[in-house]
Design a protein around this nucleic acid. Structure first.
Lengths: 351, 351
DNA sequence: ATTAGCACTCTATTTTACTGAGTGCTAACA
DNA sequence: TGTTAGCACTCAGTAAAATAGAGTGCTAAT
């Protein structure tokens, strides 16, 4: 028997064990696997292979006389090298898009709906890392005087992402002054990424004491406040109850509590998710790879959604390590496609 | 012994039982109560009174040979007629205000921080029913053309509450047209409650086919879309893990799951909370009174916060029925005061 | 009206025994 | 050399039985 055949067989058996364990939440024994293979191999042989897989760190035994359970590394190997990639058929994608598209052009609601739908479809917790202007590029500024010394600063990143915040200024400003200043800011700053806005203005202020000094100073004042109010990113989280309902958590209330703690600390979770939510395709984090306190018994999958081929946010699914990665992958990928499609359709229709 | 003395004694004993149960989460026996009363009454006497209280529906026994546990009605009676009302001292209120006041004038963040602080202080779940323009009165409209047929519609309710949404219009609009229309809308609609805005415009359109017909029609178009995008209210929820950590839920994972389900269905919860979050003072809902599926083993307290003496939102605490209502009442009241104070201080400072 | 005394009830805990799934190992086999 | 039957062994999970003890309700005395 060739080495490749040998490897094939190990993969097949790992696959069977993982799929059975995902379905049943109970350790998987050699007899079950043997039967599934239509008796092409006896339980004893399976056991030998299982020992191999265990030594390779892909499986483990909860106790001496139990079946096997996948380890983090086992799942990882399964995800990377064993499971076949499944894509949702066009038809389902269309249904999904219809499900999540809100009656009005409203990114916020589109994302909320995506989260809800994803959570429903996967029966897991779903999350959306929603974009804010800060990741994006400045396009336009508007200033609206509200009270005596309050102005509303509206910053437009693109047609879909708008930020508005109330800023208090030291000296009152007339409507016309505000309009002029806004025009100045727009011409000066349009095209620049939000990240470098303040630095750019500061540099300008130092460099030349020109006739615009006053305008630059005022712009800087306002932007500083407006940007400090703006969050980096927002996290929408939906369907934690699905995860709690999984047997691993029902059996052990402490784990349930830990899970909730982890999800409650949104900042930490968000911090971690943004690292993965940017790139191409679907990323998978398994168990300890998650690296978030309280969530080390969980896994998540992320994918990004984009406008103009540029990723502006991410979405995904979070659940127990024991999840159907194949299906989850397909659904997360599908949903990210859907959101991207709807966004770009909006873009197209309105131009 | 007078009837009043009799009643006093019953109250005292109910109080002791509830307070002991709140602290220990275990049924309370007659001996414990007797000891707490410095042996002014023997356990046997206490038992007689306990039978009374049980017949009155204020206590119940988990089983024949256990101590007593308060019923919903028992807690209700305690809250309404037994416990003394406690107010936070000025000093603590000041500390609280310092804790929640964000570095920038930003209602959103003020409310988020209030929720977090309240959750921390009470070690329960905390919620904030955040205001949106829809509850309020129109003050000003601005229209900013974005794309070809997209305009940003900014509606100001007061200096703190601003709504902005992207609206798609059928015919393109120049900057000047937009400015004119916004001016028209502001003069026409300022002072009207958002609720009646559309009706008011519709009436006007029917009544007179004046020279403004076109402007009215355009206003209506835009407002319809802008308002439909705007949510009625938003719910911030913080610290669910504190509640899950309570022994009643740790002991029984099913109850934990039910709880999570209830909290996950934000719409239902929000719907219920807004009913209570408007009025004066602190409201308490206990157990089945909560009337939200999945949360019938919980209680919540709400209070409102206001600008210009008008309630614009609510906040409160949600936890197991077995909670320290006295302390919770004081903290919820204090937090609502704090938020109201900070808001009105902002108002004052900027005028 | 209050209380001491006591039998009684019922949960929770511990103990013990038992079952059975699944393993690892050995020896035989192809 | 890979595969397999056979078998002793391990160990979680369950059930049954015994025990402890907290707390009650009732009665009769004060």
């Amino acid at each position: 028997m060739s080495v490749s055949d040998f490897e094939q067989r190990r993969k097949r058996i790992l696959e069977l064990i993982i799929e059975a364990y995902v379905a049943s939440a109970a350790p998987v024994g050699s007899e079950y696997v043997s039967k599934k293979l239509r008796s092409s191999l006896s339980p004893a042989t399976i056991r030998n292979i299982m020992v191999d897989l265990e030594e390779a760190g892909l499986l483990e035994q909860p106790h001496t006389s139990a079946g096997r359970v996948p380890t983090d590394r086992g799942y990882r190997y399964y995800v990377d090298a064993v499971m076949d990639v499944h894509h949702l058929p066009q038809e389902e994608l269309r249904q999904m898009a219809a499900l999540i598209e809100p009656p009005e052009l409203d990114v916020e609601e589109l994302l909320e709906r995506s989260g809800e739908a994803l959570s429903q479809l996967t029966q897991q917790a779903a999350f959306v890392v929603a974009p804010t202007v800060k990741q994006s590029t400045m396009k336009q500024v508007e200033l609206v005087p509200l009270g005596v010394r309050k102005i509303l600063c509206v910053m437009v990143a693109n047609e879909e992402i708008v930020s508005s915040s109330v800023v208090e200024v030291t000296e009152p400003m007339t409507r016309d002054e505000a309009a002029a200043l806004a025009r100045f800011m727009t011409t000066e700053l349009a095209g620049l990424p939000f990240g470098g806005l303040l630095e750019s203005l500061e540099r300008r202020m130092l460099a030349q004491s020109d006739s615009f000094y006053h305008l630059v100073k005022r712009s800087l004042d306002i932007l500083q406040h407006a940007l400090s109010t703006e969050p980096e990113e927002r996290l929408l989280l939906e369907g934690a109850s699905y995860v709690i309902a999984q047997p691993e958590f029902l059996r052990d209330p402490r784990k349930a509590q830990e899970l909730l703690r982890g999800l409650d600390a949104e900042d930490v979770l968000l911090q971690r998710l943004r690292q993965d939510a940017g790139g191409e395709g679907v990323r998978v984090r398994i168990g300890r790879e998650v690296q978030v306190p309280g969530l080390d018994e969980c896994s998540y999958l992320t994918a990004s959604f984009a406008i103009h081929d540029e990723a502006i946010g991410g979405l995904g699914v979070l659940g127990p390590r024991r999840m159907d990665y194949r299906r989850m992958r397909a659904l997360v990928e599908g949903m990210s496609r859907c959101v991207t499609d709807v966004l770009s359709r909006w873009e197209r229709e309105s131009s």
